[in-house]
Design a protein around this nucleic acid. Structure first.
Lengths: 137, 137, 137, 137
DNA sequence: GTGGTCTAGACCACG
DNA sequence: GTGGTCTAGACCACC
């Protein structure tokens, strides 16, 4: 559970936590049913306020990724069902388009961009069907 | 200069303006040397606060995309040189990675994601040989 | 005494126990004078903490529904007298009102809501003439 | 915008705000497009912390009932679409069942319970098609 | 021990 | 002016 937080980033800390937990789960470094550090543990590990961790956990629960059992703690859900929210997909497409625009202004070649995308997709998606390919990043 | 602004979007309006101007330039709907509407014109066209337009123009100037000539107006720069800022590239890579993660939780297939990326890359890069001319800085 | 507990529910487990015992009594699946499982038995049956069962029993006793005889065990009271606590009635009305509001936002038809209410009322009140016998306190 | 908050209630204050705003909208005391008091105004009106109001507004936005425009304020959405979430409907049914059980222990007659339900349904639902019936509580 | 709520007060970005 | 985020510290309910 070593998360990389950047307090200077414009992305709120709680959202950085959300993102990185989601990444850890996809990479199977956090397994279904596994217990997350308690809010207090996490906050002292990351040197952030417990409320910030709490907000991150609540958001993850709202997204159907983790669950909290009263008095027990917080756990990764057994079955994380991808829900194909059309609005979110459209937002993602827009974000992707914007990234492409930015990459052009940064002088990034098309091939590089696609290569990166493929590499990230393999890195994560590999875990779903074949675990051995998840480490060849 | 018909921009699509969404006041409900969580992306700041000034940033939406910046993004769409950059897109228009890439698509050659705004040509080098062309004059942009004045801050007042733009703000009344888009029904937004002049300060917002001003902030967008300042950001575009900061990024080396447009220039303001006092008393003359604001113009698209003749040569927009992609500056390969390593930090920005790394940030873009992170953003791309995050998009890939989100797409996984939305149940989007790898092929779809790559297809979209390719389509956007072609859409922009196709109109101009921006990639080849990116080294003549 | 097969209770359906959901550790994921936001209703505290002790309260779920209280609710379901009250339901069993109304449905005459638990009869007046009948002995409840001991705290230990119940906790091992339900795989929950004995303290949780204990809290549920205390609450049921506080509500005048069961009684604990030292050394003998815990029993359903012979005569459960509905006590028309005005405050609780008002709270119930508020809760009902809130349910109606929620049902509206969920797009539930008035008829459906009333049908459900009637069905539940019949389900419970039908088995016993609780309403008529409610005045013999 | 006179809300009745009960700090002693077990329902969190932010949730009480959410509930009552939803009620005001159903009763057409808050109209689509109307501006809600700012977070600061509301917090000073209700004598609660701005963060508490903020949490309530965020929840209302998450439920698709209001929207916030950056720097402008918070507004009731034009079209509030009831979304028939099956899980939430089932939870509502359970809550209704529980209310029926409670009403029995409080000695409430079936007819009273149904009468109340009908009255609340008419009070709110009346606003949808005929405004004149909304005041005959 | 666990998470949830509330307060107070500060800082920031947006328009 | 608006809302959003973060911190610090307190209190509570649950198990």
């Amino acid at each position: 559970m070593l998360l990389n937080l950047d307090p200077r980033s414009h992305i709120p800390i709680w959202e950085q936590v959300v993102n990185q937990v989601k990444e850890l789960i996809l990479k199977e470094l956090l397994l279904p049913g596994e217990k997350l550090p308690s809010v207090r543990e996490m906050s002292s590990m990351l040197l952030i306020n417990p409320n910030t961790v709490s907000k991150a956990y609540q958001e993850l629960e709202r997204q159907g990724i983790i669950e909290t059992l009263r008095g027990k703690g917080t756990f990764v859900l057994q079955s994380i069902v991808p829900k194909a929210d059309e609005q979110k997909i459209e937002a993602l497409r827009q974000a992707l388009k914007q990234l492409v625009i930015e990459s052009s202004y940064l002088g990034i070649e098309k091939e590089s961009f696609l290569k990166w995308a493929e590499s990230y997709l393999k890195e994560l998606g590999g875990g779903t069907d074949c675990a051995e390919s998840s480490s060849d990043s």
